[in-house]
């Protein structure tokens, strides 16, 4: 299957995975736009990439550690300063579980 054959249902599914509640109008527009972009980016498959090692990062990544020492950090007030809602020095969030 070619990527450019994305359907409206596919895009709605992807938007759900990305946790974006798209409106019907947005979905209609996005299907066409993504089709064009996907057709273009799919050309990576035409490059001579057989037996080429994938590269995820410009430099070889090494594990970086630091001494396990206490350093200054944000106060609870500072950490909560941008919270949409807070309660008892904690982030207050909507219910997590679905109702049956």
């Amino acid at each position: 299957m070619r990527m450019s054959e994305l359907t409206r249902a596919d895009v709605a599914h992807l938007a759900g995975l990305a946790r974006i509640e798209l409106s019907d109008d947005e979905l209609d527009k996005m299907v066409g736009e993504l089709g064009i972009i996907l057709e273009s980016v799919a050309t990576v498959q035409n490059a001579p990439i057989d037996d080429v090692a994938p590269m995820s990062h410009p430099m070889p990544l090494v594990n970086v550690t630091r001494p396990d020492e206490v350093r200054p950090s944000l106060s609870p007030e500072a950490a909560l300063s941008g919270a949409p809602e807070q309660d008892q020095q904690r982030f207050s969030v909507p219910r997590i579980l679905d109702e049956d």
Binding site: A15, L22, M30, L34
Partner: peptide, 10 residues
């Protein structure tokens, strides 16, 4: 939104 959905797909 376009790029997030494209990335989610890729």
């Amino acid at each position: 939104k376009r790029r997030i959905i494209l990335g989610t797909y890729a």
